[in-house]
Design a protein around this nucleic acid. Structure first.
Length: 192
DNA sequence: GCCAGGATCGTCT
DNA sequence: GACGATCCTGGCG
């Protein structure tokens, strides 16, 4: 799959695009990791930051597909999303977990104290390891430079779906919009 | 101007 | 398993 095809898919259908990101590579400098867990969010359901109305915070979700939407959560963690749908329609995919492939030294240094299987087993951990912050907001993740995503060479087919993590009751918490690469699920769960 | 609450994580019991 | 950390935005008045 080419980056062009991936961006087209993001533009068309965020729920279809989220599982297709599995097996893709998250790249930044020497760091490379295989994406193993994603979640889709869309403006018509209440868990999405763009639900309700346009605000400063969610503005990027309404923009071009394929951009980084990064936000700070619980006063502690950064979260990396990639935007989807046509400008004017808001949606995003949260990159939740990845398997480290290259740059282990740097990742271990930034994630000091964590065992290897838990280096990237959560959105906050992943952002910490890749040094992702609000400065990355709006970057094109499909332009092949800086922080970017390389589409999977082979689409993953063995996928576990289920409800998204941390969604409160009454906020569409039952939507099965979480996708995990079953073959590499170890890296998403942190070995548990 | 104040305050609540959130797409989490690590530590402690 | 429960909890505290710690920041930004939005809603209220």
């Amino acid at each position: 799959m080419t980056t062009h095809e991936l961006r087209d898919l993001l533009r068309q259908d965020v729920v279809a695009a989220a599982p297709v990101l599995l097996g893709g590579l998250l790249v930044s400098g020497e760091l490379r990791a295989r994406i193993v867990e994603t979640e889709a969010y869309r403006e018509d359901e209440p868990a999405c930051h763009a639900y309700g109305k346009r605000k400063m915070k969610n503005m990027l979700l309404f923009g071009e597909p394929g951009l980084a939407y990064v936000y700070f959560n619980y006063g502690v963690h950064w979260m990396l999303n990639i935007t989807a749908l046509e400008p004017g329609h808001a949606a995003g995919i949260l990159i939740r977990a990845a398997q480290p492939l290259e740059g282990l030294e740097i990742i271990r240094e930034r994630r000091r104290g964590a065992v290897d299987r838990q280096l990237l087993s959560g959105p906050g951990k992943l952002a910490q390891a890749f040094a992702i912050t609000g400065d990355d907001n709006g970057k094109d993740l499909l332009d092949g430079t800086g922080l970017h995503i390389v589409p999977p060479s082979k689409v993953v087919t063995d996928i576990q779906t289920g409800p998204r993590i941390g969604i409160a009751e009454g906020k569409a918490h039952d939507l099965p919009w979480r996708f995990v690469d079953r073959e590499h699920i170890w890296w998403a769960t942190g070995g548990k």
